[in-house]
């Protein structure tokens, strides 16, 4: 039985899967240097972007377009054993070919597709729920704490609509941020939670938004259950219309 160790990057995982795909009993583990002795037979896989891209193209060729995309989305998913899930899925691309993504009733395929769908769903939600505030230096800053790592999914969406501003989207749960300054977008680590103060206009605009939010609801139709279905409680901490402290 082979244990393949990767460096916790997407390309690393894909390279590890490529190496393990032919080894029926392989497992894939995160890089864990302190426990090296446990894995005497461990193979450390080097992350190569070129190899990873080539392998993903191969999977798309075998099992049809969308296969690589499903793997990427599943990688962003925050759930247990995704290495194992993706390894099984990649192996099935070899054995099932073009049928793979139609095997909706197969538990292994369904798991990957469900994870991918959950990531897409949260990404879409945050396109709506993300809230920017204007800081004193005119930068727009948004804080979020998503279940899944949706930052790579939504950064492009905001670049498309806010190309003329400078902005930051901060995933406080993963200490990562998308930084868009002077027309250039990059993703970087961002630790700490202190942000510069908000501008005075920003306070006023937020106040107007809260007024609108209250006034637009029809009292005779009050329906907190439907409201919770729309905006689950976990997102509300970063949305000013739900902030009870203001």
């Amino acid at each position: 039985m082979g244990v393949y160790v990767y460096d916790n990057s997407f390309n690393g995982l894909i390279c590890a899967i490529k190496a393990a795909a032919i080894d029926a009993a392989a497992e894939i583990t995160l890089a864990a240097p302190a426990q090296d002795s446990l894995f005497s037979s461990a193979v450390e896989v080097e992350a190569s972007p070129a190899d990873s891209a080539a392998f993903l193209r191969k999977l798309d060729g075998l099992a049809g377009e969308g296969t690589a995309e499903n793997m990427k989305l599943c990688w962003l998913w925050n759930g247990p054993e995704k290495e194992k899930m993706l390894l099984t899925y990649a192996r099935m691309a070899f054995s099932k070919g073009k049928k793979l993504n139609d095997l909706l009733a197969d538990p292994a395929v369904a798991k990957v597709l469900k994870a991918a769908a959950a990531v897409l769903r949260e990404g879409h939600r945050l396109k709506g729920f993300l809230r920017f505030s204007e800081l004193s230096d005119c930068t727009l800053y948004a804080r979020m704490e998503p279940d899944h790592n949706v930052l790579p999914l939504i950064a492009g969406h905001f670049r498309r609509r806010m190309a003329a501003s400078d902005w930051v989207i901060h995933d406080a749960r993963r200490n990562m941020a998308a930084l868009y300054f002077g027309g250039r977008l990059r993703v970087a680590e961002l630790t700490g939670d202190q942000t510069p103060p908000r501008s005075e206009t920003d306070r006023q605009v937020t106040g107007l938004w809260r007024t609108f939010f209250e006034a637009v609801a029809i009292r005779e139709r009050t329906n907190p259950r439907a409201q919770r279905g729309g905006v689950p409680l976990k997102y509300r901490a970063n949305m000013p219309e739900f902030d009870t402290d203001l």
Partner: peptide, 10 residues
């Protein structure tokens, strides 16, 4: 894109 839901669930 839905941005929020008001108290009436809309």
């Amino acid at each position: 894109v839905c941005h929020s839901w008001s108290a009436d669930g809309r």
